[in-house]
Amino acid sequence: MNGFKRIVGAALAALLSLCATAALADTVVLTGYPGIFQENYTKAVVEPFRKANPDIQVEFHASPNSAQMLGTLRAQAGAPQIDIVIMDVSVAKAATAEGLLAPIDETVTRHLGDLYPQARVEGVNAVGVTFDNLVLLHNTDKVRPAPTSWNALWDARYARQVSIPAVPDIQGIALTIIADKMAGGTSQGNRMKASGLLG
């Protein structure tokens, strides 16, 4: 939990400083994930920022996934309307390559130095504020015994009852790498490592 607080604290400091350097803008537009992510991020980061900076409004625009966020950034390339975007690192890498994300100004806040080294990926104009975990969830009333392997996703008993995240969602990419390795391949993992998106 301390690691999470450290990362969120640095994210809050970065948000504070980024806004301060944006010529004290009246409104900061933040795009991120909906649902529980929006609820938790608003409580942990946005609300403390609003209290500390009552003259600056923060608009949180929820977007279903990083691919859609990238599409929005592309559409606004000529007239950007988003100040801060929270997206998957794989998609942020594409956004960086397309010139849609400005480089991080390391002088903006000393708190960027508080982030774990894994929060930075070469070739990405951004820093991480969360770490994701890929997990297998199951309905304990309907799935017995509990799955002990990813192979359960291909069990005929559960045909048409399995939901998985799709690429380019970071969890979809991770699951693709797992499935590739289970099938005896190594190409996906090697490509991801070469691109810096897999440790």
Score class of each variant (00 low, 15 high):
residue 2 N to W: 07
residue 3 G to W: 00
residue 3 G to C: 01
residue 4 F to A: 11
residue 7 I to C: 01
residue 10 A to P: 15
residue 13 A to W: 03
residue 13 A to I: 01
residue 13 A to N: 13
residue 14 A to H: 03
residue 14 A to F: 12
residue 21 T to N: 14
residue 24 L to F: 08
residue 29 V to L: 10
residue 30 L to M: 03
residue 31 T to S: 05
residue 32 G to E: 02
residue 38 Q to E: 15
residue 40 N to W: 03
residue 41 Y to E: 03
residue 41 Y to M: 03
residue 43 K to P: 06
residue 44 A to W: 10
residue 45 V to C: 14
residue 47 E to V: 09
residue 49 F to K: 03
residue 50 R to K: 12
residue 50 R to T: 12
residue 52 A to G: 15
residue 53 N to T: 13
residue 56 I to D: 09
residue 58 V to A: 01
residue 62 A to M: 09
residue 65 N to K: 07
residue 66 S to M: 05
residue 70 L to N: 13
residue 72 T to K: 14
residue 74 R to V: 00
residue 77 A to R: 14
residue 79 A to W: 13
residue 79 A to I: 02
residue 80 P to H: 04
residue 83 D to V: 11
residue 83 D to G: 14
residue 84 I to Q: 04
residue 86 I to E: 04
residue 86 I to V: 13
residue 92 A to H: 05
residue 94 A to Q: 15
residue 95 A to G: 12
residue 95 A to E: 01
residue 103 P to R: 04
residue 104 I to F: 10
residue 105 D to V: 15
residue 105 D to R: 13
residue 106 E to A: 13
residue 110 R to H: 09
residue 111 H to L: 02
residue 115 L to A: 06
residue 115 L to K: 01
residue 117 P to L: 04
residue 118 Q to T: 11
residue 121 V to D: 12
residue 121 V to C: 12
residue 127 V to Q: 13
residue 127 V to I: 14
residue 131 F to D: 01
residue 133 N to I: 03
residue 140 T to S: 01
residue 141 D to S: 01
residue 142 K to Y: 08
residue 144 R to S: 15
residue 148 T to L: 10
residue 150 W to E: 00
residue 155 D to P: 07
residue 156 A to D: 14
residue 157 R to Y: 02
residue 157 R to E: 07
residue 159 A to D: 02
residue 162 V to A: 02
residue 171 Q to H: 05
residue 171 Q to T: 00
residue 177 I to M: 11
residue 180 D to N: 15
residue 181 K to Y: 06
residue 184 G to F: 08
residue 185 G to P: 00
residue 186 T to L: 08
residue 187 S to C: 08
residue 188 Q to M: 14
residue 189 G to T: 01
residue 189 G to N: 08
residue 191 R to M: 08
residue 193 K to L: 07
residue 198 L to H: 00
